[in-house]
């Protein structure tokens, strides 16, 4: 049987843990709001860019060739794994990593290399048999454009130089605050927009200077935009998961405090009863 003092001590620790988890929940909630705003802000740009690319393909004659579209026999593959920098976010990281490990197993061993985004993925896959060629961490839970650009530059250069033949992304897509989806998505080579699929779309565009040179300057931006949408989704999902995990922890701690308080009262009463009994039996003995 626990003594009164022990129970009191435990109640105290649980209460202070609850204070921490509820603070973390609040922080995650406000970061989630910001991350959702970011998704809203980046969406128009990527939509317009998609549209423009489609029109560009529809309006230009013949097939466009750009290194990013180069379809090669996939001998060497690269996987970009997007995780968070910090833990305490429920099953967010373990889910995406499990999915990545399954994917890596299916793809076979030696030809796959990994680029990790976020510390957790790097830490957990470091000891595995796959080679991690680069790691981008310390995002602080939000998008940093310079870093995203570095990542995209690294990937595209590797692809164009022929050091890898295809690049896939694994990340957590943010659907709603309580719903996430883990997505495996091809990144490079980019899927070629269909040229002039609908006759009506084939309007006579004026291109300045030429469709090819517009492609040349549009594609890096397009690759970056695609990566940015992936990253902002993952950050929002991370904060959402953390908010839920911390919310659960807070309510669990609350239950625990209730249970412990009950135990504390019971123990206290038992002690009083015991002391009373002792006094009474002592008095009886004196008679």
């Amino acid at each position: 049987m626990a003594t009164l003092r022990d129970v009191k001590k435990r109640i105290k620790t649980v209460v202070s843990t609850r204070r921490i988890t509820s603070a973390m929940e609040m922080v995650a909630a406000s970061k989630l709001r910001r991350a959702q705003q970011k998704i809203e802000q980046t969406r128009p740009y990527s939509q317009k860019m998609d549209e423009m690319l489609q029109h560009l393909a529809a309006g230009s004659s013949g097939d466009i060739s750009h290194p990013y579209f180069a379809q090669r026999e996939p001998k060497k593959k690269t996987l970009v794994l997007v995780t968070s920098d910090r833990g305490l976010c429920g099953s967010f990281n373990s889910n995406v990593i499990r999915r990545a490990v399954n994917w890596l197993r299916e793809e076979g061993l030696p030809e796959v290399e990994i680029v990790t985004v976020g510390k957790k993925g790097n830490d957990l896959l470091k000891s595995r048999q796959w080679e991690i060629i680069n790691n981008y961490s310390d995002w602080g839970g939000q998008l940093i454009y310079g870093k995203a650009r570095d990542l995209v530059d690294f990937l595209t250069q590797r692809f164009v130089a022929g050091e890898t033949d295809s690049i896939h992304l694994i990340y957590t897509q943010f659907i709603s605050t309580v719903k996430y989806k883990i997505v495996v998505e091809p990144y490079l080579p980019l899927t070629r927009p269909k040229s002039g699929e609908k006759a009506g779309m084939r309007s006579q565009y004026i291109f300045e200077p030429t469709p090819e040179s517009i492609y040349e300057s549009l594609m890096p931006g397009y690759a970056l935009t695609k990566m940015v949408t992936v990253l902002v989704d993952s950050f929002a999902a991370e904060h959402g998961s953390r908010m839920i995990a911390m919310g659960n922890a807070t309510s669990n701690a609350g239950e625990m405090v209730d249970d412990l308080t009950l135990l504390y009262n019971k123990t206290r009463q038992a002690q009083i009863t015991k002391e009373l009994l002792e006094v009474i039996s002592g008095a009886d003995a004196l008679k």
């Binding site: 423009m52 291109f207 040179s213």
Partner: peptide, 19 residues
């Protein structure tokens, strides 16, 4: 500021894409 110099656009301009 188009790639080939500044250009002005008024309503009902012909379809155009430029960097």
């Amino acid at each position: 500021p188009g790639m080939e110099g500044y250009l002005g656009i008024l309503s009902n301009h012909a379809p155009l894409i430029t960097a």
